[in-house]
Computed example of a mutant assay.
Amino acid sequence: MGTVTIGIVDDHPLLAEGIAAVLSRSPHLRVVSSGNTAADIVEIANRHQPDIVLADLNMPGDAFEAIETVKMQAPATRVIVFTASTSSDHAVRALAAGASGFVLKGSQVGELIEAIEAVRRGEVFITPYFAAKVINALQAKEAEKQAAQQLKLSIREEQIVRLLLCGKPNREIAAALALSEKTVKSYMSNLMAKLHARNRLEVVIAAQKLMPQPPAVRQDR
């Protein structure tokens, strides 16, 4: 592997200097810049175009937004989050934003170098003893996403629910939408099953949480 250029962003100068000193002992690693705010993550990526940016999360600015910006503006630069945070939510957010690694500050130097090498190869690296927690969080988030997609109402289902809100019976709903009563009853059965509702009222209550609400009308005096 050739020389890997690295940027370090951490709001603790002594820690950043220490990391730079340790990494510089490896002949194939070269620190090219450092910073101490989330904005510096983007600045370093755009100006110096390092292979890797090591970035903390707990510093001035929005680190997650900065990671996402680097992903869009400087895709050749990979971000490894190097943090003391053991929050799986933080890890999931960072990875979703575009980070290629999540390494805890309690890790050994060898693990940090291993992370740099893995990410340079195009892999994703997570501190091993923390990985299972992050994977479980990712799986839970994906399950929530799939459940939300399954509960999404179709345009026709939204039309029926809006008419239900007006107190319309199946016969009037059928007439308003140019459907047969049998078809409306079928939609109602599907809505009750999808929303785990026992009656029409529960359908309306559950559906209102999923349907986009119209903007409020401003009343000028």
Rank of each mutant, 00 (worst) to 15 (best):
D11I: 07
T3C: 07
A94Q: 06
I6R: 00
K182W: 12
N46P: 01
V124E: 05
P27A: 12
A206L: 11
T183Y: 06
P214R: 03
Y187D: 07
R121Y: 02
V184C: 04
R30S: 13
A91H: 05
A94M: 08
T37Y: 03
Q139H: 06
M192N: 00
R78N: 09
T69V: 06
A94E: 09
V119D: 05
I52R: 00
I8E: 00
C166R: 14
R171E: 14
P169H: 11
Q159D: 15
K152G: 03
L191Y: 07
K141S: 13
A96V: 07
V109M: 09
V53R: 01
V31E: 01
F82L: 12
P50N: 04
A118N: 05
S107Y: 01
A63D: 10
E114I: 01
G101K: 00
M192C: 02
S186D: 08
S34I: 11
M211K: 06
E181L: 05
A193F: 09
P13T: 11
I173H: 06
K141A: 15
K182V: 15
L23E: 07
I41V: 15
G122A: 09
L177T: 13
A207V: 06
I41Q: 09
I135K: 02
V109S: 11
A140M: 14
L14M: 08
A148H: 02
T5I: 07
S189V: 14
S189N: 08
V134L: 06
I173L: 05
A39P: 07
V22R: 14
S85A: 08
G110W: 02
Q208K: 15
N199Y: 08
V79C: 03
M192W: 00
D220I: 15
S85P: 05
A20D: 10
V217W: 07
S26C: 04
R218M: 10
R221P: 13
I67K: 08
S88Q: 10
E144M: 09
G106Q: 04
A175E: 14
G35C: 08
A91Y: 01
P13C: 11
R171L: 13
M211G: 07
A74L: 04
M192L: 11
A176S: 15
E117L: 05
A66V: 10
L210D: 12
R121C: 09
L195D: 03
T77F: 00
H196E: 14
